[in-house]
């Protein structure tokens, strides 16, 4: 074969820097055009979807209980800010740490199972967290934890100010996004990729694959917690919605719609889903039907998701 004699240049990732720069520029301008509260909500969900994508897209594990990490961190952060009076940065950190710890426990229980069994164990455990949240005293049951103080971050950033809050949320999102990029393109990420491509072969090379999956799971849980904690501070509320199983479904929808296993897909997916929920809100419960239709079209017509199909068209990983 003639093609074999000329080694092709290694598939570069340079274009991803350009897209990233564009994304940052867009997010810097958008709050002056669009309602910042909507953007903050979308950014929190974008981070959540990216964290979920680290697991489904880059590790090959389908969790159907990721709401527990978003919701639990929300409760812990809200409680820390309201009851313990912690500043927002420590409250968010507490929520993130709690979700990481929860991720470790759930991961240890579920990681040895695959496919539907893994999904069901995560779902079952998430349901347990849901009922715990419903019954426990500190979560406020049906009411949730309301009027959480936003406070002053690092003692200088007053989060009562809408724009300050927005840029803090943007910074948190970007930090989480960059961490995920780093994980994917790290020595650890290479092993994850190898495990996803051919697990028996990875085992035969001496890799104890459960350990790697567990680390990815904990990272994903922690980043979901970061999103949940931030969201609780932004909306001054932690509620049952975020631990409900439908939230676990929504993050699947966002990730698949945008394109799982792509860097930017979950961000696009989260923005579309959140935009639909906000701008179609007057349709009432028809929003759910609209979401369902979008999901079916996505799965039938462009299985790789919007960004995934675009990447295939451009022949570049996005």
């Amino acid at each position: 074969m003639a093609r074999d004699t000329a080694p092709r240049a290694k598939n570069g990732y340079r274009h991803q820097y350009a897209i990233f720069a564009f994304m940052v520029a867009l997010f810097l301008v958008l709050p002056y055009v669009i309602y910042p509260v909507f953007l903050m909500q979308a950014l929190c969900f974008a981070l959540f979807a990216c964290a979920f994508n680290l697991l489904i897209g880059y590790t090959g594990l389908v969790s159907f209980g990721h709401a527990m990490f978003l919701g639990a961190a929300g409760y812990i952060s809200a409680h820390a800010a309201k009851v313990w009076g912690l500043p927002p940065e420590l409250a968010i950190l507490a929520g993130t740490a709690a979700s990481a710890a929860l991720g470790l426990v759930v991961g240890l229980l579920a990681i040895r199972r695959q496919g539907i069994y893994f999904a069901m164990i995560t779902l079952a455990l998430a349901q347990m967290i849901f009922f715990f949240s419903l019954q426990a005293k500190f979560t406020g049951g049906e009411d949730g934890i309301q009027s959480v103080p936003r406070g002053v971050m690092f003692g200088i950033l007053n989060l009562q100010d809408m724009m300050t809050m927005y840029f803090v949320v943007l910074a948190i999102f970007l930090a989480g996004f960059l961490l995920i990029c780093r994980v994917i393109h790290s020595p650890f990420g290479q092993v994850l990729k190898a495990i996803r491509e051919n697990e028996p072969r990875a085992i035969s090379l001496g890799y104890n694959v459960h350990q790697y999956k567990l680390i990815a799971f904990v990272l994903s849980a922690a980043l979901s917690g970061l999103a949940g904690g931030t969201k609780a501070i932004v909306f001054q509320l932690a509620s049952l919605t975020d631990v409900h199983w439908t939230m676990s479904g929504e993050v699947v929808l966002m990730t698949l719609l945008g394109g799982m296993g792509t860097l930017f897909g979950p961000v696009v997916g989260a923005f579309i889903v959140i935009a639909m929920q906000n701008y179609l809100a007057q349709l009432g419960s028809w929003v759910t039907i609209a979401q369902g239709v979008v999901f079916v079209i996505c799965v039938l017509a462009f299985r790789r998701g919007i960004v995934g199909e675009l990447g295939r068209f451009l022949k570049k990983p996005l």
Binding site: K10, R182, V183, H185, S186, P187, F188, G189, Q190, V191, K193, A194, E197, A202, L205, G206, Y207, Q211, Y212, I215, L219
Partner: peptide, 25 residues
């Protein structure tokens, strides 16, 4: 994975660089 990466995955195990998720490729 490229051929080089295929072999490198095995070398990574041998030389212990497989858990570093915070480092660059």
């Amino acid at each position: 994975l490229t051929l080089l990466e295929n072999v490198r995955v095995a070398l990574q195990k041998k030389r212990g660089k497989s858990f570093d998720f915070w480092r660059s490729e």
